[in-house]
Each structure stands twice: as structure tokens, then as C-alpha cells.
């Protein structure tokens, strides 16, 4: 009896959480597919805001958003994709290499260096933004891709995740490889990196979310559309009164889709990594 009640309570709670999490996403999708702006405003006060009848589905909002010359969405998406992919891909190699050195190579000051990296995790981006802006301005990088890529490649939390993983890799693997003739680089590239796929997935997801959704830094360093990411464009789009909700939501959907695809692509590894972290 008690077990039955507990199961029902758990299920109810799970459904409630699911609804709370999914509601804004459903609102976004449903609104983006409604062509009549008046109807959208009427629906907002009712449950119909979360639903669109199959007969009313229209891609008009998407067409408008994609053809807007003032705010070229595809360009913004491309900018965000280039910036995010660059930070994530280069970041994975750089951060894993740093972590490998810290966990596997013997050199003076290794412990201190690790302590510094770990302590850097707690320093928020906002605290570094102004001095970083001055530096970037000095080197003439404002309004470029690199100003949004280079400062974010080294990522202390990613280094920490890789470090944690590498310290758990059996030393015998390295030793076997060294006996077989491998160099430290070959051990990193040929063994440590391929074996760290779950961490790579975790880092890829966390960093892509962080970069794709970043707002403050792009706002400080970009002016025109050439290097402006989609997160900033959405704010700009939304901030122009009066908001056209159908377009805003279509824009939001298009902005969310790439991140969702990345997550779905890495989901298996991400969950495996999270589970491993939980049980070890």
C-alpha cells in the first residue's frame, strides 16, 4: 500500500517537473507555428498558448525571420556556430593537453599550477570582462571572431574534468605504451584522448551551451552583424518594440535547435560521464 502510494507520488512529481520544464519549450514551438499574430495574443491568456492545431500550422514566422535583411538570422547562426565550434574543438585539445600534463608529466610547480587552475573556476566572467575588454581593444580585435574565441579556449572547469578523468586512468597503460616506444605526445594523442570520450562529450556540451548562450561578452565586443552571435541578435530582435511574438518564437526555435542537436549527438556519452562521476 505504502509502496503504491510512493510510486504514485513519485510519478506525479515527475510529471509535474516534466510539465514545468517542457511548458516554455512547448509555448515557444506552438507560438512559432502560428501565423496569426492576433490569435497568438488571444491564446497567451489560455492553455491554447501551449498548443497549435495541425490545421493552423504555418511556417510564415520562420519565412519572415529568415528573410529579415535588418537582422540576418542565418548570418548570426553562422557566427555563433563558428565561434562555438572553434572554442569547443580547440578547447578540447588545449584543456585535455593541459590536464594530461598536470596528471601525468613530472615537472616543478605542477601542484601549484593545478591549485591555480582549480581556483580560477570560481572567478566569474563578469569580473574579468573589463580588463579583458581593454586588452582586446589594445590588440585591435574588437568586432572579430577571435575576440569571442581566444579568451575562452582555456577553460579551468574543463581542465579539472579532464584532470579528474586522467588521474583515474591506470598508469600501466602509459607504462605499456612507453615500453612499446611511445612518446608522451603519442600517449596523450593515441591513448588518453580517445579513452576520454565521455569527458569530451561533457565538456563539449557544457562549453557549447556556455558559448552559444553568452550575452555580456559579445555585447561588449561586437557592434555590427559581421561577428555578432545569435544570442545577442535575439535580444536585439526582442528589444525592438512592439515585439512580434510569432517571429520572436521562431527566432528562438532556430536559435535553440543547434544546441539541442549537439546535446542529442553527445547525450549517450554525457549521461555515461555523469553516471561515472556519480558512482565513483
Amino acid at each position: 500500500m505504502n509502496n503504491g502510494f510512493a510510486s504514485v507520488a513519485r510519478l506525479t512529481l515527475a510529471v509535474f517537473i516534466l510539465v514545468v520544464v517542457l511548458a516554455p519549450i512547448m509555448l515557444m514551438f506552438a507560438t512559432s507555428l502560428k501565423g496569426d499574430e492576433q490569435q497568438i495574443l488571444i491564446d497567451f491568456g489560455t492553455w491554447r498558448a501551449f498548443w497549435v492545431s495541425p490545421g493552423d500550422i504555418s511556417l510564415e514566422n520562420y519565412r519572415q525571420v529568415l528573410s529579415d535583411v535588418q537582422a540576418p538570422l542565418l548570418r548570426f547562426l553562422l557566427n555563433s556556430a563558428v565561434i562555438t565550434a572553434s572554442v569547443v574543438v580547440v578547447g578540447i585539445f588545449v584543456n585535455s593537453a593541459v590536464a594530461f600534463s598536470l596528471s601525468r608529466l613530472e615537472f616543478k610547480g605542477r601542484g601549484l599550477l593545478l591549485a591555480v587552475f582549480v581556483s580560477l573556476i570560481i572567478i566569474p566572467m563578469e569580473a574579468l570582462a573589463v580588463p579583458l575588454l581593454l586588452m582586446m581593444n589594445r590588440v585591435g580585435w574588437l568586432d572579430t571572431y577571435q575576440v569571442q574565441i581566444v579568451p575562452f579556449i582555456a577553460h579551468p572547469f574543463s581542465i579539472f574534468l579532464f584532470y579528474q578523468f586522467f588521474t583515474k586512468l591506470p598508469r600501466d597503460l602509459d607504462d605499456a605504451a612507453y615500453v612499446e616506444g611511445a612518446s608522451p605526445w603519442q600517449v596523450y594523442w593515441g591513448l588518453a584522448l580517445p579513452l576520454s570520450l565521455p569527458v569530451i562529450a561533457t565538456v563539449a556540451i557544457l562549453q557549447s551551451l556556455e558559448i552559444w548562450n553568452s550575452y555580456l561578452w559579445p555585447l561588449m565586443v561586437t557592434r555590427g552583424v559581421e561577428a555578432r552571435p545569435v544570442s545577442l541578435a535575439l535580444a536585439q530582435f526582442f528589444g525592438t518594440p512592439p515585439p512580434i511574438w510569432g517571429d520572436v518564437m521562431a527566432f528562438s526555435v532556430l536559435m535553440s535547435l543547434p544546441v539541442l542537436l549537439v546535446y542529442l549527438g553527445f547525450q549517450r556519452w554525457f549521461i555515461q560521464s555523469a553516471v561515472n562521476a556519480a558512482i565513483k
Binding site: L173, D175, A176, A177, E180, A182, L195
Partner: peptide, 29 residues
């Protein structure tokens, strides 16, 4: 370095590379 000493070693834990096939493990060196 170990690789220049002309030795090979078998470990207690086997130390096989888990992402490589048997063929690639044997061919590694």
C-alpha cells in the same frame, strides 16, 4: 628511455589498450 633499452614488458593488469582491437594492440609497438 624504456623504448631504447630493447625490452618488452607484460603487466599484471595486462595494460591492453581498451579502445584498440587485439590486432592493433599487438601491432602497437
Amino acid at each position: 628511455r624504456p623504448k631504447d633499452r630493447g625490452i618488452s614488458m607484460v603487466f599484471q593488469s595486462y595494460a591492453l589498450f581498451p579502445h584498440k582491437t587485439v590486432y592493433e594492440n599487438i601491432a602497437y609497438g
